[in-house]
Design a protein around this nucleic acid. Structure first.
Length: 787
RNA sequence: GCCCAGGUGGCGAAAUGGUAGACGCGCAACGUUCAGAACGUUGUGCCCUUAAAAGGCAUGGGAGUUCGAAUCUCCCCCUGGGCACCA
């Protein structure tokens, strides 16, 4: 009996103690759920357009609604959110919207696989992801949300497309295209990986397809980045885009076809070649044309016909992979305009039909490829001194090709065009927009566009002659959707145009655009193209849509490989949030490496962050009324305020977090801290850990949100302490460090005098002549000595 | 082949002409505990040294500029990304 009683008594005390301790302990889950609700109810993150503060447009690439936020999303969004929060605390009116890039193949593929309608699949995923976003604790204002698959958005895709059509920028053309036989669609070059479809991995084939193009090449010149652009974009992006556009200056040269026998059956007199090196024309010993060139088509020789046939069988991929050059002599000759000599004309597929004129002059002396060819077919090689001056037209050529924009798929923006037998292609009148995507359509692959199977939708009246006509059954590439969505954010429900020009004037251009490097040659280039087009339409007044572009790195799996389901190395953010809480995940993502870097996720290292948060949680227990701050404490505080602020501003998140840690170490070493120290610490931690800091502030007795607080100001007078440490060097080698009163930090003579008293230093100076003294204020004194 | 970004402890990384390795992980010893976990304290680049002091060596390799170089210049090697017969 007694034993039982004492046991009961003991365990009661234990439970009581645990409860008391529990209340004081940091439990992220409870706090985070509490504040998610509260922030939402209080509309804390609502953007106020009428504010007089300076605007700051913080933009992260809009996600694709795959149905799950992965660690990559967290890495893209949470440091960007910390930046946005800092900007807001430092007095800016921050606009941080988000949306979903909701059209596209994955929805259609998933739908086909699982028998769910793409729209239902997409909208359900968006719902799930928005919940996950609220866990993330960002200050995104969802009232400006854009979902690209909704008619209120794609209506304006159609509007823009028709404007482009009117300007001759959207046109119907036929082209040999990359065709995916499984997805039954045309693919852009960017969507082919090693000759295979980026989605389904099947072999891409070449097929002549009629399709819509956007004339981005008309903007090639204005899309070229200047040496020193006015906006802050990474060099890698600027140079990557410039290489992709591939501007080269050269000359069109005419080579007369030799007709000395007077019996040529050809219906052309000359071949025009493009060269960037007209100064080598005297070294041109033969001419080569592509198999598709009109000249080649006219040659009657059997072996030539055979060669052309075989070349056309090969895909562009196969041709590019070939290492050995092939070709055939046409039997005809041309005249070198500089030397007057007759030179043979060859047909070979190392010359591309789609670049320049599809014909070149071969200068084997100066060009590696021509040299290979000349050696293989025993053609002459003649020296050039690079001084030839042929007559020709100076031209600029671009590597960039027009953008194939139409897709033979269902889940996209319908092309707003009508095909009429009498009137040809007629745009849908503006007042009839949007052309809505019908819901009940058989979207399984049939070899023709799914929309073409919906007769009711397809058949319509021609807006011009009112006769029978058919709608265009193709849909737009989703890169069209994402090329201008950030304009739509500013007035996401605007009905009189794609965007309110007033709102754009007030909020654009974007101040910082966060995203991935995979969009260097696709999305960001198209976005710049649309911006130039909008400017030409007179809708906007600037040239570049984003003042600054930052590209985040990649978080690899713990094994150092890219995360993938097949490798089984996927780290699920939801699991980590469950274990450590959102604040820890956010803080760790900021801390683990620079934003631009690529490195593996470490499951262990986040525990250090978790420990840090627990220590912050307990910090207020050290606050005492009688606590004092000495000079050193003040310097620590002011330096940290400055460092964290500067780093958040310049997106150096990792060093910002580490300086918070250093200050915490200092505060913990003190017996007691002041309320000021505790409160300032919480404030400057707030952009990284919005939940915990909000909770702590409430515990300190405040009623309003910490996220509406102003960033603390630092005091210049306390950025340096009473003493500074000088490194004392002899011939550039540090031999000692000496503490000097701060008032002498700029006084070379005084510092020199104090420093020479050091035993270590005097040992090195003994018996030597000081030839020179180098003095760096507050840091270094270096004696250059000679024996 | 061309263009871009990199190469620093056992690991993630700081330092962008001025004390290399801040901060964090990991590891070790000690404390706490019946024990473990958690937590706390101290230590932790390498070599020499019982240890300390002192010294030497170290930022992919080699040269150079400089009083002083991870940082700037040149050559070479390696890794990641992009482009690639563009005349």
């Amino acid at each position: 009996m007694v034993g039982d009683l004492s046991l009961k008594f003991k365990s009661d005390i234990m439970v009581g103690m645990d409860e008391a301790k529990k209340k004081e302990r940091y439990f992220p889950k409870e706090i985070e759920e509490k504040w998610q609700d509260k922030w939402q109810k209080e509309n804390l993150y609502k953007f106020r357009g009428d504010s007089k503060k300076e605007k700051y447009y913080n933009l992260v690439e809009l996600p694709y609604p795959s149905g799950d936020l992965h660690l990559g999303h967290w890495f893209a969004f949470t440091p960007a959110d910390a930046h946005a929060r800092y900007k807001r605390m430092s007095g800016f009116n921050v606009f941080f919207p988000n949306g979903f890039d909701a059209f596209g193949l994955p929805a259609e593929n998933a739908a086909i696989k699982r028998g769910v309608h793409p729209q239902d699949w997409t909208m359900k995923n968006i719902e799930t992801m928005k919940k996950q976003f609220s866990t993330m604790g960002t200050m995104i204002d969802w009232s400006h949300e854009v979902i690209t698959c909704l008619p209120e958005y794609y209506r304006w895709n159609q509007w823009i497309f028709i404007k482009m059509f009117e300007k001759g920028l959207a046109y119907r053309g036929k082209a040999l295209s990359n065709w995916c036989p499984v997805d039954q669609t045309v693919l852009a070059n960017e969507h082919i990986e090693n000759g295979k479809c980026w989605r389904c991995g099947s072999e891409v084939v070449q097929k002549e397809v009629e399709q819509w193009f956007l004339g981005i090449t008309k903007y090639a010149e204005s899309l070229i980045w200047p040496e020193e652009p006015k906006v802050d974009w990474p060099k890698s992006v600027r140079e990557g885009q410039n290489n992709w556009i591939g501007r080269s200056e050269g000359m069109m040269l005419k080579f007369k076809i030799s007709k000395k026998d007077g019996q040529s059956k050809l219906n052309m007199d000359e071949i025009t070649v493009f060269t960037t090196r007209p100064d080598t024309t005297d070294g041109a010993t033969f001419v080569v044309v592509a198999p598709e060139h009109p000249f080649a088509q006219q040659i009657g020789l059997e072996n030539v016909k055979q060669y052309i046939k075989e070349a056309q069988k090969k895909t562009e991929m196969e041709r590019k992979e070939e290492k050995v050059k092939t070709g055939v002599f046409s039997g005809e000759y041309a005249v070198n305009p500089v030397t007057g000599k007759e030179i043979p004309i060859w047909i070979a597929d190392y010359v591309l039909a789609t670049y320049g004129t599809g014909a070149i002059m071969a200068v084997p002396f100066a060009d590696e490829r021509d040299k290979d060819f000349a050696e293989k077919f025993d053609l002459p090689i003649e020296k050039t001194d690079f001084e030839a001056k042929p007559d020709g037209e100076k031209v600029v050529q671009y590597h960039l090709r027009d953008w194939s924009i139409s897709r033979q798929r269902y889940w996209g923006t319908p092309v707003p065009m009508i095909h009429c037998e009498k009137c040809g292609i007629v745009p849908v009148p503006y007042e009839d927009l949007p052309v809505e995507l019908p819901y009940n359509v058989d979207y399984t692959p049939k070899g023709k566009p799914p929309l073409a199977t919906d007769e009711e939708w397809l058949n319509t009246k021609c807006p011009k002659c009112e006769g029978e006509a058919k709608r265009d059954a193709e849909t737009l590439d989703t890169f069209f959707d994402s090329a201008w969505y950030y304009y739509r954010y500013v007035s996401s429900h605007y009905e009189r145009g794609p965007f309110s020009e007033d709102e754009v004037r007030a909020l654009m251009p974007v101040d910082v655009y966060f995203g991935g490097s995979e969009h260097t040659l696709g999305h960001t280039l198209y976005a710049r193209f649309f911006t130039k087009f909008f400017k030409d339409l007179g809708l906007i007044g600037f040239d570049e849509f984003a003042k600054k572009r930052v590209q985040h790195g990649v978080i690899l799996g713990p094994d150092g490989n890219r995360m993938s389901k097949s490798r089984g190395n996927v780290v699920n953010p939801d699991d980590i949030v469950k274990e450590y809480g959102t604040d820890a995940v956010r803080l760790y993502l900021c801390f683990m490496m620079p934003y631009e870097a690529t490195a593996p996720w470490s499951t262990d290292a986040i525990s250090g962050i978790y420990r840090f948060l627990h220590r912050v949680w307990d910090l207020r227990n050290k606050v005492e009324d009688g606590a004092k701050m000495d000079k050193n404490d003040l310097v620590f505080m002011n330096q940290t305020i400055k460092k964290v602020g500067d780093d958040l501003n310049s997106l150096e998140f990792n060093t910002a977090v580490s300086s918070l840690m250093t200050w915490l170490n200092h505060l913990e070493a003190k017996k007691a801290i002041t309320m000021d120290e505790c409160y300032v610490f919480i404030k400057i931690l707030a952009p990284f850990a919005p939940y915990m800091t909000e909770e702590l502030r409430e515990k300190l007795g405040y009623k309003t949100s910490i996220h509406l607080e102003k960033w603390p100001e630092y005091d210049e007078a306390y950025l340096t302490g009473d003493k500074v440490t000088f490194a004392v060097q002899i011939n550039g080698k540090t031999r000692d460090t000496v503490e000097i009163e701060a008032e002498y930090m700029a006084d070379e003579d005084k510092v020199s005098q104090i420093v020479k008293e050091s035993a270590k230093v005097s040992k090195y100076l003994e018996g030597k002549d000081i030839v020179k003294t180098i003095f760096v204020k507050g840091k270094i004194i270096n004696f250059v000595v000679k024996n």
